[in-house]
């Protein structure tokens, strides 16, 4: 249960909202540790949404949670993660004379750690407001 992907970190609305609530709060932490991969890659590596994996490269490593996206949302072989401390762990300080570290498109190793908790499928009771 190991594989290589190319990581493209970026902004997301959830990450932005989390940022406003506070970077030291749970929500931000949760958002920035979610790794989005294509359904095909997940299947190939035997991963499911909610699984915990270790992603690493020659710079550093970090633990994140997998989210598998349906076909076409993200190309096979690539993974997306919102900006945050976990993605920073993998950035190289080399900027090739621009000041901008290569923050998109680094190769990472993905390694399975443990199964995620099964999501409760039961819907919460309807409130009066619907």
């Amino acid at each position: 249960m190991k594989g290589q992907l190319i990581l493209i970190p970026g902004r997301s609305a959830k990450q932005g909202v989390g940022l406003n609530k506070g970077k030291l709060k749970d929500e931000y932490q949760k958002v920035t540790t979610t790794l989005e991969v294509s359904f095909e890659d997940a299947a190939r590596m035997g991963l499911e949404t909610g699984d915990h994996v270790k992603i690493s490269n020659n710079i550093g490593e970090t633990n994140v949670t997998v989210k598998a996206l349906r076909e076409g949302k993200i190309p096979e072989g690539y993974a997306f993660i919102p900006y945050g401390p976990p993605s920073s762990c993998l950035f190289d300080g080399e900027t090739c004379g621009t000041g901008m570290p290569a923050s998109k498109g680094m190769t990472i190793d993905v390694e399975f750690i443990k199964k995620g908790e099964k999501k409760k499928t039961k819907l919460p009771p309807r409130t009066a407001a619907g």
Partner: peptide, 13 residues
């Protein structure tokens, strides 16, 4: 001089 005086570089070095 980007790459020299940009912050990622001054810190990384």
């Amino acid at each position: 001089n980007p790459g020299e005086f940009t912050t990622v570089d001054t810190l990384t070095r």
